[in-house]
């Protein structure tokens, strides 16, 4: 597709530095950036908290099975969908980075205001997981390949592959063994046990309760690979959904005559 004469004229116009045209489009840029930041924070955060939230809220839910398997799958969905308008329509390889950053900011604000200041939970119990490296890799792979299939395989996969490694440096200190009231647990277990969650008892934790055949005990690795596989498919699926949602088009407006516009049937131009 090439530009129409009008569009070519506009492209020239907005390329003149400090012109009205440049100012207008820059104003437009900034307003849209702010809209996107708030909207993505809201949408991505509510999506994430209601599908993988509990694992993210509590240090004693961050296990090797569900947390590692599920979180990347949930993470890839909205960034993949937004990749379509951002990368395909604007050439901006930033969907993952924007979503990750917005999510992390939204989470920290909520952990400080809701979990810590209101509900008295210590930060050691409620810190959010690190999601940015994987989502940034997703953007970078998409940019380097500029191909949605390769982006699905490498970018989608990277979201899962980077998740456990990104979090282990902050989680490992909490997985040091402790003997508390004669029971072997780890520090995360002790923190979760000590700071009462009245309505979320121990048995409610969806965590690895024992493995059947992880052979070398590599639960995390097995979870990561499975998650990466699903993420590849999810990336492609949701990129397509993003495409669908970006090209929805219009429907007739029955009310248009009320605002001085001609009714549709008369438009035979």
């Amino acid at each position: 597709m090439s530009l129409t004469a009008e569009e070519a004229k506009l492209l020239k116009a907005i390329s003149v530095p400090n012109s009205d045209a440049a100012k207008i489009v820059r104003n437009f840029d900034w307003i849209v950036v702010v809209v996107l930041l708030f909207a993505v924070t809201a949408a991505f955060h509510i999506h994430f908290m209601l599908t993988a939230g509990d694992w993210d809220f509590w240090v004693d839910w961050k296990d090797r099975m569900y947390w590692v398997t599920l979180t990347p799958m949930i993470l890839v969905i909205i960034p993949a969908a937004l990749s379509y308008p951002l990368m395909h329509k604007l050439g901006l390889p930033i969907a993952g980075t924007v979503c990750g950053l917005c999510l992390v900011i939204g989470e920290w604000v909520s952990r400080i205001s809701g979990f810590h200041l209101w509900a008295y939970f210590p930060y050691s119990l409620v810190w959010p997981a690190i999601v940015l490296p994987g989502l940034m890799l997703m953007d970078l792979f998409y940019m380097l390949f500029r191909n949605v299939f390769l982006a699905s395989v490498f970018g989608g996969g990277a979201v899962a592959m980077a998740f456990a490694p990104a979090n282990w440096p902050i989680l490992a200190p909490y997985h040091v063994p402790v003997v508390h009231i004669e029971q072997l647990v780890n520090v995360a277990d002790v923190i979760g046990y000590s700071f009462t969650r009245t309505a979320t008892p121990e048995y409610l934790r969806f965590i690895e309760r024992g493995t059947l055949r992880t052979f070398g005990g590599e639960s995390t690795l097995v979870s990561t690979f499975f998650s990466a596989f699903v993420c590849m498919i999810l990336f492609y699926m949701w990129w397509r959904i993003g495409q669908f949602l970006s090209n929805l088009g219009t429907i007739p407006n029955q009310l248009k005559t009320f605002v001085g516009l001609e009714a549709d049937k008369d438009e035979a131009k």
Binding site: L3, D29, K89, G91, P93
Partner: peptide, 19 residues
């Protein structure tokens, strides 16, 4: 420049300017 420039470049298939 973020949106309108890039939108037109994409339409123009000018990827060397986009990335």
């Amino acid at each position: 420049p973020l949106l309108i420039n890039r939108f037109l470049w994409v339409k123009d298939n000018n990827w060397s300017a986009l990335i």
